[in-house]
Every structure is written in structure tokens, then in C-alpha cells.
Design a protein around this nucleic acid. Structure first.
Lengths: 349, 349
DNA sequence: TTGTATGCGTTATCAC
DNA sequence: GTGATAACGCATACAA
């Protein structure tokens, strides 16, 4: 039986709210669901009492009842890597505004995916999964998420016209395609305009699709302009490797008129090696181009000319994919496409 | 009735696993709970069949039944801020290894907390909450989480002996205390040893507790050595503000013999202003000390002498607090303490 | 519009 | 050690 203030022992908070508002437990649920039918004044009353008792509907219960966790899983190798940090930042903000929370998972440093990680993540039943890491084995991803839940970030080969994505296991999922050709063409045009012909490509991690696609597109663009192909220096996206590789290139190797780096961070390593260890002036002796346009690229010590991937645009596309998929769970795989462009600063000239 | 392969229509995956293994639904649950009683061979069989069917227990259901979400909420203003990125990175790795997932939330850029954010997060019923942001109003935090769930990161005033934390609303929560005095004393000793007396403090965000504590401790340490107090330059932890503030200090202001920055990123701004705009040599004309020891501090262009907060140690302490609290939910608030130390590089001399 | 009853997937309790 | 059953907190089909 209810006591004087309308509470009983053993009640859940939701039931207390219901009692206090003189409504059923179901009405409390409806009050928090804007599209559920409930008289406006009752809804207001329930929400007010809930506010007083600081009651909020439990997401686990809601997830069980609705099959929607309001969770978006994200897998990254390094949260602290500048580019990934920025993207997680923007993505979390955008998702939070739409009532989703970001569930973060880390892969190993060598970008090899623990096979258990996907099952582990699937236990949380995320509404969507964004796979940043580029070597999540497609079959593993497919086994873990048989529906078209994941969003995959793809850097397609742009040999000719991008066209539709090729048939592959990966292709059963929604996909964000990053076309890198525009920025690379602009960068090559700029380098070419300053008479640079001997270009070295400071590679990223050899298994990274972004790296492979960047290199291939660069070679295509150079060939199309009648320029010699770029010499490839092995790298791994890191500052230290960019630094060391540049020392090797100029001390033991043939050097270069321009360095095209797979990302900004390794470009910084190259810049520091050129200026502080090799005593070469940038851009007078050697030009440098990066990739990403992270904040640090604008810092005075680097002032790096770089190919920009617009984070806001990229995240907006991801969010579109996620929301579309949630609205139409069985629709065929969706594709969003974004492009790149060159940001000109002081390391080419 | 079961069909030939032991499956029926309308069954949940867990029930299919149970049928295939010729056991009850409860046995399947037990198989995934190492401490639950179940014959070893049955457990192995269930796990094998589950593996084949890629079944994993649903966390939402488990959370409902056990009141444990295996979720740890983290609130940060910027994921991409280098220091916070590193910490989230390490924390996620450590938690993941222990069966928890990181649930990420972002505050506004001005570090003001949306009051709804805490309720919003509470809906997910995280087992613990790590509050990085330093201006989460204690009363809000307390209203949202009445149990001692949150872990709060505190930068206490170290006027004399640290002693026990003062009584405050915040004090009802578990707490990680970061004692900054050691590193600051070492930095001041180094600066003093090189004859620097006129020190400027390039501040962080004025509301940030870390910033306030750093400044106060710095002044105490200077006073204890009979050195003049530091001049305070307003800042906000950002590169740009560090850059601009340094220009102002040396162009319109009295300059300084050393700049003590509230974090590494603003120290980079100060360094770039000194070297590239003011034409002052570091460390010959001006010494610079940072705070955090992020990766970039070791890069050649900066080579920053800085006060290190050991991330691994800090995260280990956080994890200890989280696990302790989970084991003894009603125990009195716990406190872990970590210290700082100076990392000597090339910007002081 | 509103309340009642049921199910979501899991674990804990209780008998056996 | 094992299986049936209730309970976790919520949303919704259905009946009113």
C-alpha cells in the first residue's frame, strides 16, 4: 500500500515517480518518449517530478526493450594520434547532440586486431560501429556484425574515374569513401610549378590502406604530368621514423627536391631532420608536403603545406550514414564520398 | 519441439546454443561466468558452440541482471588535446584489458558543463565515472551520482605538507591527487641554477584547478628560495594564446628571463614567438619550461624541458580506484596520490 | 489518451 | 552440479 507521500518500500525510482505523479508506470515511460501518446500536462508533471528525483530512464532497460543501445562503437589504434583524436572529438560531439554515446575501443599498436575485440564490442550491441583502423579483416568484421551495422572508412584506388566501389567482402557495409586525388593533384601542380621533379614519398604504415592509396594516386598523377615516379621511403606515420628516414635519404641516399609525406606527423619529422640535422633550408633546398592538416601544421615552427581532409565534412558524412542505417536497417549499403584539397603554407616554394 | 539440428523457431541465440549443447539456458550463462559452478567439459562445449555461432552474452541484459554495466564514463573538454588524448588512450587500454569499455562524453569548449550531460551519462549506468574536466560543479556531480561512483582528479594546494584532503562536497568521491610540487621545485632549482630570476608564468585556463594549483605552488617555491614572485600572463592552455601572450610580454611588457608555461602546448607557442617573431634565442636569452611532457615536447623543433606527469602511473592509480570501488561499493572515499618530476631537455640553460 | 500485461537477454535464487 | 523461475528496467501491443 502507498504511504502518505505516495511511496512504498521495494519500489523502483520509476515507480516512485509514477506514484507521485498519480499515473501508471507506463505513463512515466511515455513521458520520456516525445512521440508516445500522453496528455501534455501529465507529461510535464512526470518530467518535473523525475527532475526533482533526478530520475532518468535506464539505457540498459531501454536497449533491451527497443533493441537500440544508443551506443556507437569506435575502434582506433591510437586515441592520442592527432588526426584520430580530432576525428573522435568531432564525432563524439556530433553523436552526443543526437542522443548517442561513443563507445571507445583500442586495437594493438601494430594495428593488428585482436579477434576477440569485435565480439567483445558486439556484446554492447552498438547501434553502429565506425571502423577507423584500416586492417580490420573484412571477414572478421562480417562475422561479428552480420547486419550492415558497421561504417567502414575506405580510401579507394582512383586509377581512373572513381566509379562505384568494387565488389568485395567489405562492400556489404556502409562506407565513407575518401577521394584523395584532388589534393594530391594540387600538391603536385604546386611542386611542379616550383620546378621540383625528384620527389620522394615518405610512406605511412605499409599495411594502411590510406597509405597505399596515397602512394598509388601520387604515382598516377606524376605519370600523367610526365614527371618521374616518386622514390618510396619506408615509414610508419610516426615522427621518429619520418626524422630517421629523411636522414638516411640525404646522407646515404640520393636525396630529393621534395618530400611528400603520408601524414603531417611524419612530415614534421622530415622537416626537423632537414633543418636541424642536415642544415637544409625549407623550402629553398627541399620542399615538403604533408597530409591531414592537423592543428600543429599551422604552428610557426612547421608552417606545413599539407593536404586537408575536412574533419567536419567527414564526420557529418559518417553521422549521415549512421542515422540513415538506423532508419532503414535493411536498405542496401550506402556510400558517402568526401574529397581533399591542398592547404598552402610555407614549406613549398 | 526441436528440429533435427536442435533448433526451433522464435528462439534466441542463447537458447539455440543451449539446445545444441544439450544443456539448459542457465548453463550457457554459467559457461560465460568463470566463477559460476559448471562442469568443465560442459563449459568447454558451450563456449565452443557459442564461438561457432558467434554468440556473446548481451551486456544490456547482463547489466540489468547484475547491476554492473562494465562501462566507465569519461568526460573531457577535448579528446584531441594532446594530454587528454594520451590519458584516454592509456585508460581505455587498461580498462579494456579488465573487461570494461570506455564511454566518452564531451563538455563544451569553454569547459562549462551542460547540466544535462551528467543525467545523460547516468542513463547508461556506468560502473564508474572519471571526471577530467576540472570545473564539474561538485553539487551537480553529487546529485547525479549519489553513490561514490565518480573518480575525481584533484590538484590540491600544497602550501605545506599535503596532509589529508580538505572537507568539501567533492570529498565524498574517490580522488586522484596530483602533487605538482616536486616537479616545480626541480624546475625552479634548475632555472635558479642558471641565474634566472625574473620568471613569467604563462597561465592556463583561469578556472582550471590544475592551472591555479600550478601557479600557487610556483609562487610558494619561488618565495621559499627568496626569488621574486612570477609575473602572471593570462592564457588558456592553447598554442595561439601562448604565442600571442609571449609577443605582448616582450613587445609591450617587461619581458622575462624565463617562461614557465602551464602546459606544453602553450610553451610551444611561447617558443615559436621567441624564436621566430622576437628573434630571441632559447635558452640563451630566455629559458622555457612546460608542463605535461607530451610526445611533441621531445620533437627536435621544441626539445622542451618540462614537468612530467607519468601517464602510466596516473592511469594505474585511476584503475586501482575504479576497481577498489567496485569491490567495496560502500567503503569510505579512497585517495590515490601521484607526483611529478622534471624532464630536462634543451630549453633551459 | 490511459492502464495492464508481456517480452527484451541475462543472472541469482532456489530447489533438486 | 544442474535446471526451472523470478527479477532487473524499460517500451509497447492490446484492451479499455
Amino acid at each position: 500500500m502507498g504511504s502518505a507521500d505516495g511511496t512504498r518500500k521495494g519500489q523502483s525510482i520509476a515507480e516512485i515517480v509514477a506514484d507521485r505523479a498519480q499515473v501508471s508506470r507506463a505513463a512515466v515511460s511515455r513521458a520520456f518518449n516525445p512521440k508516445a501518446p500522453l496528455r501534455a500536462d501529465k507529461r510535464a508533471l512526470v518530467l518535473q517530478i523525475a527532475e526533482e528525483l533526478s530520475y532518468v530512464p535506464n539505457m540498459a532497460g531501454r536497449a533491451l526493450a527497443t533493441q537500440r543501445s544508443h551506443l556507437v562503437g569506435v575502434i582506433v589504434p591510437h586515441v592520442c594520434s592527432p588526426w584520430e583524436g580530432i576525428e573522435i572529438d568531432a564525432l563524439t560531439t556530433a553523436l552526443q547532440a543526437r542522443g548517442f554515446a561513443t563507445l571507445l575501443f583500442k586495437t594493438q599498436i601494430d594495428r593488428s586486431l585482436d579477434p576477440k575485440l569485435l565480439s567483445y564490442m558486439r556484446a554492447y550491441n552498438p547501434d553502429s560501429v565506425v571502423v577507423f583502423t584500416e586492417n580490420v579483416p573484412p571477414d572478421q568484421l562480417h562475422r561479428a556484425f552480420d547486419q550492415a551495422v558497421p561504417v567502414y572508412v575506405d580510401y579507394p584506388d582512383e586509377a581512373t574515374d572513381p566509379g562505384p566501389p568494387p565488389e568485395s567482402a567489405m562492400n556489404r557495409f556502409d562506407c565513407l569513401r575518401v577521394l584523395q586525388r584532388d589534393g594530391i593533384e594540387q600538391a603536385v601542380a604546386l611542386l611542379s610549378g616550383f620546378g621540383r621533379r625528384r620527389i620522394a614519398y615518405l610512406a605511412g604504415h605499409p599495411k594502411a590502406q590510406a597509405n597505399v592509396a596515397r602512394l598509388r594516386t601520387l604515382q598516377q598523377v606524376l605519370a600523367a604530368r610526365g614527371l618521374p615516379p616518386a622514390a618510396v621511403i619506408e615509414g610508419d606515420f610516426s615522427y621518429q621514423r619520418g626524422y630517421d628516414a629523411t636522414l638516411e635519404l640525404f646522407r646515404a641516399g640520393p636525396g630529393a627536391e621534395a618530400i611528400f609525406a603520408a601524414n603531417d606527423v611524419s612530415a614534421f619529422g622530415a622537416l626537423d631532420a632537414l633543418r636541424h640535422s642536415l642544415g637544409l633550408r625549407v623550402p629553398d633546398a627541399v620542399s615538403v608536403v604533408g597530409f591531414d592538416d592537423i592543428d600543429q601544421a599551422a604552428w610557426r615552427s612547421y608552417d606545413l603545406t599539407t593536404i586537408k581532409i575536412d574533419v567536419e565534412e567527414r564526420v557529418a558524412a559518417l553521422v549521415r550514414l549512421i542515422l540513415q542505417r538506423l532508419q532503414h536497417r535493411t536498405a542496401p549499403p550506402l556510400t558517402e564520398t568526401i574529397r581533399t584539397k591542398l592547404v598552402v603554407r610555407g614549406t613549398v616554394g
